[in-house]
Design a protein around this nucleic acid. Structure first.
Lengths: 231, 231
DNA sequence: CACCTTTTGAGAGTTACTCTCATTTCATGC
DNA sequence: GCATGAAATGAGAGTAACTCTCAAAAGGTG
């Protein structure tokens, strides 16, 4: 592959990320953002060419034009370079912006759609491709999948807090936690399903089906096709 | 700590494990089982004394009186020494032994109780302690927790197959997978909850509450305390 | 006992990750 | 513009989890 940029044109994709929020930051903060995305872009580029295992952190550092130390300062593990997303806070805000009497699953559905739309808006050309690469790695690389599950459980705790606020329960309540983790895990499974089938389905459609399955669990009638699981 | 056994008395706990199945195996197979449990016992012993991070595979090898190479031959990663369980096949058999028209969650509840009872029967003195150590490590060591989630998702696939057989669906059906993974993940969360609270609750009680939460998801009435989550 | 297969140990090598310290780069008050 | 302090970076050494290879040992079988 030689459609990659030469060293003379460092990290070209960088400029496209975080177009608005990037302003009004100190030079230092802007530089930090730049190296962060430079590292991530370099990682995606190399992995696309060579695969995950064949790509070492040293190579990533070189490609991103930083030292290996810096890579580890920005991302605690190699998997984090791929998985870490900054959208968790966003999702929490989105969830909290919904009326408290809306069914939880509706709020979640809306928050997912909204956050995906915003990601696409941030980086139109790359959002889809990056998401495919990421989920593909979740399927093929156990370490990445593990890290994704960890990250998902963090999002689960977030959902716990929202649920707790809505229902007046404790966020550490067993029932709250079980519900939140079950839901998050189901959603992750949907994404894995999407990647395993070579992204043929519409992700949002899979999300809808997942949420439906989740809300229909207790019904016994086999009339809508999503609810005969409980026997 | 000097209640540890000397090198002259190698792996004393070993003899207690797998008391029945161990016979009728060739000498080779028996030896393999022995080293396997020797490694595991050594690991638990060392971790109890020194903690997880401080315990290296080299130390484990020495304590188990094998070479480091052998340790890695038996367990692909250090976390696997702690997490790997041989009870998955057992659980599948247990699930399949139930009548096909029994509600799934009932079968699961029964299978969990049964498999726990059998583990206790296998190694009465150590079963509880080992389970506590293991779940404690899931809470405190991210790598172990990740590995546990991976292992859980394998069990989830198993549940998919059982569900598929029962409902006549495909085991790769999105709804089947989402249901199975959601349930498994919820159960794992219950165990983590148990460990986080210093094992004060009865695990089986937590399992029951988890399964109840799962089966009550779609109901709206706030009358039994487990079901107002869907708002 | 001899022959073949499986298991083991020894050792070298890779790589992710950690820690420390000196150097550079940015922010700020003058 | 410049001095001073703080934050970010780079360089390098070190650790430990794995991987691979190959020769020695042990088990199974005629």
């Amino acid at each position: 592959m030689n459609n990659m940029t030469t060293a003379r044109t460092p990290v070209p994709d960088t400029a496209r990320r975080l177009p608005e929020a990037e302003r009004r930051l100190s030079l230092r903060e802007r530089k930090k953002l730049k190296t962060r995305t430079a590292i991530r872009d370099a990682t995606y580029r190399l992995i696309k060419e060579q695969g995950y295992e064949a790509t070492t952190v040293e190579q990533i550092a070189e490609e991103a034009e930083v030292s290996p130390s810096t890579v580890f300062r920005y991302f605690p593990t190699k998997e984090d370079i791929i998985i870490t997303d900054e959208y968790d806070v966003l999702v929490e805000d989105l969830l909290r912006s919904r009326p408290a009497d809306e069914p939880v699953l509706e709020s979640v559905r809306w928050a997912i759609r909204q956050s995906m739309a915003m990601q696409v808006a941030d980086t139109p050309e790359y959002a889809q491709e990056e998401m495919k690469l990421r989920t593909g790695l979740m399927v093929s690389v156990p370490a990445v999948r593990s890290r994704a599950m960890e990250s998902m459980s963090v999002t689960g705790r977030l959902l716990c807090r929202v649920l707790a606020d809505r229902t007046g329960r404790d966020p550490d309540d067993l029932e709250v936690r079980v519900y939140a983790m079950g839901l998050m895990s189901a959603l992750l499974e949907a994404v894995l399903y999407w990647a395993e089938r070579d992204y043929q389905d519409d992700v949002l459609d899979l999300v809808d089906r997942t949420l439906s399955t989740f809300s229909n669990l207790a019904r016994r009638s086999p009339d809508d096709g999503h609810d005969i699981l409980t026997g």
